[in-house]
Amino acid sequence: MNDTLVPRLPLGDVVADIVDVVTKSGKDVFAAVKTGFLAAYEPLEILFTTPPAWTIILVIAALAWWVKGWRLGVGSAAGLVLVAAVDQWDNAMATLALVVLASVVAIILAVPLGIWAARSDRVSAVVRPVLDLMQTMPAFVYLIPTVVVFLTGVVPGLVATIIFALAPGVRFTELGIRQVDPEVVEAGHAFGATEGRILRQIQLPLALPTIMAGVNQVIMLSLSMVVIAGLTGAPGLGRDVVAALTRVNVSLGVEAGLSVVILAMILDRVTAALADRAPVARALARS
């Protein structure tokens, strides 16, 4: 071990120590976070799993129809019926609750951060490498400290998912605002608008299609991470996928995996259609 060119740097140990210290000193904070997430997750899960499957299917199909068209509505309904038919309904709804919660929190954090980064080159310069790190770090690695901090269950999965899914939200928001035609922003200034008004009435609306593409990415990353979070005992489809893997259970794997795909497709198409419904996107489509 000692004949390597450079001495062994105990980076991992150092980080582990830091996590250790943080865990101990931030005990109360983490407890509060955990309580908060559980308080948000449980009603959501109840909301999705309590009603009979067909009501949920109808609601989702109607939503898909409304945002995009009847094809997506019918397709969504068919997909969800298939999920129910392979007995993955409850798992799928738990996963959906996790995705919704993680995505909402990630977007609430990502959009303001993206706006800040768009308005300040310095912030952008700091945020960018952090996002690079967050996106390229293997997804499993996030699970380790979150398990240390939050133990097993829903919360470590949620937290890891939020961190993992944050990056595209920030990036797309920054990109969207930065690529707003500078002349239009100038026009806002030239007519005496305040910064807040320019952000609200010019930059955000014009950046919205791009921001929505970011939201779509956040949701898709959330879904993929939520499944991985099954490793730490998060409920939902992930748990069955992990179980299928450990037991080499092909039929369970196929059914759970297929349910993930169906969920992913519905979420993707619906949010993509939402992006097309942004006022600017619609205005451009009409011209």
């Binding site: 100038e186 010019i202 609306p205 205005a283 011209s287």
Partner: peptide, 11 residues
Amino acid sequence: MVFQHFALLPH
């Protein structure tokens, strides 16, 4: 001010 590329709000 009037701008070269109009600078209108498209929506």
